[in-house]
Write a protein that binds this DNA or RNA. Structure first.
Length: 292
DNA sequence: AACGGGCGCAACCGCCCAGCC
DNA sequence: TGGCTGGGCGGTTGCGCCCGT
């Protein structure tokens, strides 16, 4: 049996919102704030379902909504995050200030999805013929990470070893997905090297972070290749400047190798029972490590 | 100018989960 | 502990606009 409807639909307006309804809703929320959606229509004098009011506010009326064309940077970020997260539109939207999950979902369904599928089909044909196009986002798509379950309490960035030719590798570490449990220390993060946001220099001192204060969004913001002095081969614009800029698009994303490493080396287990819940939590954080 | 198909986007639907009692 | 409620989420629908014929 179905559950009871969120509200009686009798006598309620449906369909497109009028300017007058928008005004009433906006004014009401300005005064009383968000929440109590079920009672809001009655109190505000709207003939709308509470859920409808909530949706209208979140997707359209909120003052911080950014409307207009999705930029190239945003598009690239959406593609990469979708690669990582799948259809977790709210999480993806959380990384795009001013964008709503609905907008991103629509944009994906009408633009990116088609394009990626088309490229995918093209790539599979080319691959079938023994060639593989370079720098194609649709090629070697790693398994989607489902953002549930597993904890991720630590991130360790191993500092470059003196005299070592090895590139330093960022490691996600926690009780479930670490490959080096000996270093595990709950609720903390050890960073063996600290990046100076101003000059890009790296210090080797150890530092603990409280993971409550550090989100994966920060990790997403953290340019590992830059940090690790890994040359960015894919993006000609990338890493010509060591500074960490809040407006620079490359700081918003991992490079493909990092993504694949995370998804391919067991650090992050796609479709595992112990999924990356923390990843989801991380992505919701808007705190910025570098205090942008 | 009229018509029809395609597209984009706002809105709706139904399920799920967390919190509260 | 279980039921109820509020709120969030992803999928789907439907309407209006645009463009080609």
């Amino acid at each position: 049996m179905g559950r009871s409807p969120c509200c009686s639909k009798e006598g309620l307006n449906r369909g497109a919102w009028t300017a007058a309804e928008d005004k009433i809703l906006t004014e009401y929320i300005k005064v009383h704030g968000e929440g109590s959606w079920r009672n809001l229509p009655k109190r505000a004098g709207l003939k709308r379902c509470g859920k409808s009011c909530r949706l209208r506010w979140l997707n359209y009326l909120r003052p911080d909504i950014k409307r207009g064309n999705i930029t190239q940077d945003e598009e690239e970020l959406i593609i990469r995050l979708h690669k990582l997260l799948g259809n977790r539109w709210s999480l993806i939207a959380g990384r795009l200030p001013g964008r709503t999950d609905n907008e991103i979902k629509n944009y994906w369904n009408t633009n990116l999805g088609k394009r990626v599928r088309a490229k995918s089909a093209q790539a599979s044909i080319v691959e079938h013929m023994g060639k593989k196009p370079a720098n194609d986002i649709s090629v070697s798509v790693p398994p989607t990470i489902r953002t549930k379950a597993s904890r991720c309490t630590k991130v360790i960035v191993v500092p470059p070893q003196q005299g070592s030719s090895m590139s330093p590798q960022p490691l996600l570490q926690d009780g479930y997905i670490t490959s080096d449990k000996e270093h595990a220390a709950p609720e903390s993060i050890e960073v063996g090297a600290i990046l100076n946001p101003k000059d890009g220099s790296i210090s080797s001192s150890l530092m603990d972070f409280d993971m409550k204060d550090l989100g994966l969004s920060d990790l997403l913001d953290f340019n590992f290749p830059n940090f690790c002095n890994i040359p960015a081969s894919n993006d000609k614009n990338d890493l010509t400047d060591n500074s960490i800029s809040s407006t620079s698009h490359h700081q918003l994303m991992f490079d493909d190798e990092t993504l694949e490493e995370w998804t391919g080396n067991g650090c992050i287990q796609p479709d595992d029972s112990s999924e990356t819940q923390t990843l989801a939590a991380f992505l919701q954080s808007e705190e910025d490590w570098f205090g942008e």
